[in-house]
């Protein structure tokens, strides 16, 4: 059963408790982000922030401005493109629906960063020795020390939320609840973000402000993206391994040829 989180933006008060809880739970180092006019710090997810709370000024129907806050992190797609493009299997989908990254397996190709329809994963550019890809793990780390949902607990962010804007549960149940909230209160826009985006995500959002006004990508295809790439990318291992074999063969051929040439030279000198 896929787990998910329902984010009700009408309840979020922008306290950033989720963001700090995430940082503490995952032992992520803190940085000093640049000034941001919206007071979103950092302005987007980055190498050391799996999540950030976007602060946006939006115009209401009556023309008056107001503020809305939206927690941003990996959406945990049901059909994750990042997993599809990851030929080293550093990214996998857990049975709970968490898209989990294993830095030991990562070769640093960064295909996932390019492939993500939501531009979430970030790269640790400033680590020259062993840079890793950084994104929300859904507090799934059953063999490590950062696990929560593998042990039956809700994610750290949900646990910290004082305004009940975040709710953790089975995705199906959360979808029902989202529909029920939308139908029982006219303030909501009739859109569950994540229900269909990118073929469906385990993080779901409901809002009283159209999502495009909050900077959410609403041009994301509703067809699972791996369907587009699968036919091509399934050849990646073949291409990679085949290419590798070809280059290895070329390498040995060249090496041998040079060795033969040097031996011939020697013989010629000796003569």
């Amino acid at each position: 059963m896929a787990k998910g989180v329902l984010v009700d933006l009408t309840k979020c008060i922008g306290c950033k408790g989720c963001q700090t809880a995430c940082k503490q739970w995952n032992d992520l180092p803190a940085t000093i982000p640049d000034f941001d006019n919206n007071l979103t710090y950092p302005a987007d997810t980055d190498a050391y922030n799996y999540t950030t709370v976007l602060h946006r000024v939006v115009e209401k129907e009556d023309g008056q401005e107001t503020l809305r806050f939206a927690k941003r992190q990996c959406m945990h797609c049901q059909e994750p493109t990042c997993v599809t493009v990851c030929f080293s299997r550093a990214l996998v989908k857990s049975p709970e629906g968490a898209i989990v990254y294993d830095e030991e397996k990562c070769v640093g190709c960064r295909y996932c960063i390019i492939a993500c329809p939501f531009q979430v994963p970030k790269y640790e550019w400033n680590d020259a020795l062993k840079p890793v890809v950084s994104k929300c793990q859904f507090c799934f780390d059953p063999r490590g020390k950062h696990d929560r949902i593998g042990h039956g607990m809700e994610p750290a962010c949900v646990n910290a939320c004082p305004s009940r804007a975040l709710k953790f549960g089975d995705r199906d149940e959360l979808l029902k609840e989202a529909r029920q909230r939308i139908s029982s209160d006219s303030k909501y826009v009739n859109h569950i973000y994540g229900e269909k985006e990118a073929g469906g995500t385990n993080w779901l959002y409901i809002s009283d402000v159209p999502f495009e006004k909050l900077g959410f990508r609403t041009d994301v295809s509703q067809t699972p993206l791996p369907y587009y790439v699968h036919d091509y990318l399934k050849w990646t291992p073949t291409v990679f391994l085949g290419g590798g074999a070809l280059f290895a063969a070329l390498h040995f051929y060249t090496k041998r040829r040079n060795e033969v040439a040097r031996a011939v030279e020697k013989e010629e000198v000796a003569e």
Binding site: K16, Q19, T20, Q24, A30, F35, L39, Y41
Partner: peptide
């Protein structure tokens, strides 16, 4: 506190 500084570092 580094993680609280990170979420609001600048006087404005």
């Amino acid at each position: 506190n580094p993680s609280l500084v990170e979420v609001c570092p600048w006087m404005y």
